[in-house]
């Protein structure tokens, strides 16, 4: 599996466009900045929705309409983040594939997606006039807390990708190399 991922990354790395993006100080930084700044839109909206459900923000706006309204800008932000995120991966494919933080982030994103799906389902299924309550029903509050935790962890992992603490290039064989999926005798990093 690691070998397969590595070979795929090496193939991406051989593209001229990947190299161009990687080596262009300005182009890469604009894409990276857009990725990070869209946090304000995407996660900003998401955090507010989660805090609303937990009764910590905007208690006077009905919870379900609050969530439905903010979903739109959040999803716009999310699409921008996915798009720029894919470009960033494409610019630095090998190192990203073999980054512990990138791998953890990937699984956290899947977990966050499942959580978001369940959260949405619970919100639709919740009966009664809960939307005007300060706090949402417990099951929704749990979903909101999990969403907060997952996304905080995702941002932390995302930020840590930039650090080379566990890079295959600078580590000795061991746990970190195992988790990073380093390949014996690899020459490309």
């Amino acid at each position: 599996m690691n070998e397969l991922l590595y070979n795929f990354a090496v193939w991406l790395d051989s593209h001229e466009l990947s190299t161009m993006l990687h080596e262009s100080y300005y182009m890469y930084n604009w894409v990276e900045s857009t990725h990070v700044l869209t946090l304000m839109l995407c996660l900003g909206m998401l955090f507010l929705i989660d805090l609303r459900m937990m009764g910590l923000a905007f208690p006077n706006i009905p919870a379900n309409s609050f969530a439905n309204r903010l979903n739109i800008p959040m999803l716009i932000g999310f699409s921008v983040m996915v798009f720029t995120g894919l470009w960033l991966f494409y610019a630095v494919p090998v190192r990203s594939t073999q980054s512990v933080w990138f791998r953890v982030k990937f699984f956290l994103l899947i977990a966050a997606a499942i959580n978001a799906f369940l959260f949405h389902k619970n919100m639709i299924n919740a009966s009664g006039s809960w939307a005007t309550d300060i706090k949402a029903p417990k099951i929704i509050r749990i979903g909101a807390s999990l969403s907060l935790l997952f996304w905080m962890a995702i941002v932390i992992c995302g930020r840590f990708i930039a650090y080379d603490w566990f890079d295959c290039e600078y580590t000795e064989p061991g746990l970190s190399q195992f988790l990073s999926g380093c390949i014996d005798g690899q020459t490309l990093f």
Binding site: V36, L39, M40, L43, M45, L48, M152, V155, I156, R159
Partner: peptide, 24 residues
């Protein structure tokens, strides 16, 4: 370095919260 990186991540998270409030 790790402490700096963690603080940096929280700086970003708070930026997201501030951004959310400003946008809304």
């Amino acid at each position: 370095g790790a402490a700096f990186a963690v603080v940096e991540a929280f700086h970003l998270l708070a930026m997201a919260l501030l951004g959310g409030a400003v946008f809304v």
